[in-house]
Design a protein around this nucleic acid. Structure first.
Lengths: 119, 119
DNA sequence: ATCCTCATGCAACCAATGGTTGCGTATTTC
DNA sequence: GAAATACGCAACCATTGGTTGCATGAGGAT
């Protein structure tokens, strides 16, 4: 039943700072730790650590150019992460709907004959 | 632009243990720290701490009955969390599609003069 | 060649979080 | 009343996300 989730991938996008970093990288087509930190409320070093995390799970890739390290989003991997979000969301959604339906059934059963459609 | 996300709510469902706890609570219609811990790879105390977190953001509510504290999922709040997941997912999805479309446009623009069908 | 600037990398250190064990307390149950 | 059980609290540990400070390396100006 419950959707299989790559916990590393999930926790990588679970951090709000990392989500904003991905946003920035997508909008600008890439960026460095320094350039990113200018648009974020944390230091360059903190951003660098987050980039390590994102790189470890393959959400970004770096290319060294001179004294800069340019990071770009791996769109395929991000698409996979987004799909997982959607899956988990859909799973819970279905569960909630099922429960609601059951509650509905029970309520109706109380009104007339017993017809409990238990899960 | 970027979807507004309640970071507390997000981070509450961001933890894999907490997700499994919500799953268990939904399936059984409720549970205590002790009962939950029997189906999880962590101790009762760890579960209790997670329950505090979930309670703080309103995803579960407790009712004390004798020496037990029974926790139940607040389905409305969970639905809200799920909606946020969906929103964030949809936002990124749209962004990715937009980028893909732009790339497509650029590629086609290149083909009009240059015929390398590269990908 | 040298010096200055700027982007990185590395290390030490701090606070918060998720986990553990141990122990005290309250409610059932026998 | 005594044993068992469900909880809560406190101490303690490891990991993580954050900081500051400093060393290094590449580029540009003199």
């Amino acid at each position: 039943m419950s959707v299989v989730v790559d916990d590393d991938l999930w926790s990588a996008v679970g951090d709000p700072i990392r989500r904003r970093m991905l946003d920035l990288l997508l909008n600008d087509g890439g960026g460095t730790a320094t350039s990113l930190s200018e648009h974020l409320p944390v230091t360059r070093q903190a951003v660098a650590k987050h980039l390590v995390v994102l790189d470890r799970v393959g959400l970004v890739h770096a290319t060294t150019a001179g004294r800069e390290r340019l990071f770009r989003v791996d769109q395929a991997q991000l698409a996979r992460a987004v799909a997982q979000l959607a899956d988990v969301g859909a799973g819970w959604d279905a569960r909630l709907r099922r429960i609601k339906r059951i509650a509905e059934t029970i309520r109706r059963a109380g009104e007339s004959t017993d017809k409990t459609g238990k899960q």
